[in-house]
Computed example of a mutant assay.
Amino acid sequence: MFTRNNARRGLRDITNAGPTDSSAAVKPLSRVPAPTTAPIDSSRSDVVPHPPTTARSGSSYQHSGQVDNIDARDSGDPLCATEYVADMYEHFRSVEAQTSCRPTYMKGQTAINEKMRSILVDWLVEVHLKFKLVPETLYLTVNIIDRYLASTKVSRPKLQLVGVTSLLIASKYEEIYPPELRDLVYICDRAYSKSEILDMEETILKGLSYSITIPSAHAFLVRYLKAAHADKKMVQLSCYILDGTLQSYSLLQYLPSELAAAAVYIARRAAGRNSWSPTLLKYANYSEEDVIGVARDVMKEKNSAQSDLRAVNKKYSSSRYGAVANTTLSNDF
């Protein structure tokens, strides 16, 4: 249950996160429906459960197997926009680099660091779950935070204000009923007033030139799960893995589409399926060889995550999400 103690934890942890470390090494560099759980067709070789394959055998299968038309069954549903969905994702791929940040912007911040960002995102995952918001809201929130921090220096006491205001902006964009302002004041334990949140909202929007529409990693995940013929557990596993990437500053080196593909790759291996498939090769436009390096870094970050960042594991340990956080994920690939 979310209480004022959680709000105090968010602000206290950010405040006590320690001095900034500018020497940390990092590598240079439209909305869609929620994932559906397509039934498994046992006649299809790429969805028949069997032991995980090596990268080499998977590489052979992805180029030789049958490619399915994943939109054929939805052609009569106008909400699926099957006539335009391929063009939509082509556009998403063309603009995702422009709406993403790379893990270099902390060099310009003098009062905050990567650890504080991770603590803030961990707190926001908990707040997002409490308000029962749609997944896109969380991904947009984190994107707004990163893009704003990439352009504006923020003091340590104001970082949580940036986070909660970004949640408000994302909620107004994505939700039918966004959280009320008084509720956002409450979850911050009244550390900020309504007027401070509204002033920060104007500041952030002007700082981003009111550019809020982004192709998020979750948007790509929805498409890739459909191409993967994912069952319910694979959907939950992929979402668990992808949510975990939000806390990692270093994973900003990868594009949203790459992180979504890596989440599907890891989930398929955990489910005992072929690592990659011809249908995924076509619709994700990534080969297994393209994805495997990203997946390794995702698992490396997951295994080395701070022990005090518990929100994602707590969320996906519940039966509502299939308790997939208890699944053993191998990084032997």
Rank of each mutant, 00 (worst) to 15 (best):
D231Q: 12
L246D: 04
G244H: 09
V222M: 05
S248E: 14
L237R: 02
L252W: 02
L225C: 11
Y240H: 15
V235E: 09
S248P: 08
G244C: 12
D243T: 03
L251K: 07
L225F: 14
S248K: 00
V235Q: 07
L246M: 15
Q247A: 13
Q247M: 12
K232R: 15
V235A: 05
Y249L: 09
S248R: 04
Y240N: 10
G244Y: 04
G244L: 11
Y224G: 03
H229S: 15
Q236I: 01
L242K: 00
K226D: 09
V235W: 00
S250W: 03
Y240T: 06
S250V: 13
A227K: 07
F220H: 06
S250P: 07
L251N: 07
Q236N: 14
L242S: 06
K232V: 09
H229G: 08
V222G: 04
L242H: 02
S238W: 07
A219P: 00
K226R: 15
L251H: 11
A219S: 15
A227Q: 04
D243N: 14
L246Q: 13
S248M: 07
A228F: 01
L237S: 03
A227R: 03
Y249T: 13
Q247L: 15
C239M: 14
L225D: 01
D243M: 05
M234E: 11
Q247P: 06
K233F: 08
K232Q: 14
Y224P: 01
Q236K: 09
I241T: 07
Q236G: 02
A219L: 09
L242D: 08
F220K: 00
V222R: 05
K226Y: 03
Q247R: 09
I241V: 15
I241C: 04
I241G: 02
Y249V: 10
A230F: 03
K226W: 04
Y249N: 10
C239N: 12
L246C: 12
V235I: 12
Q247I: 10
A230S: 15
S238L: 06
F220E: 05
H229D: 05
Y224E: 01
A230T: 06
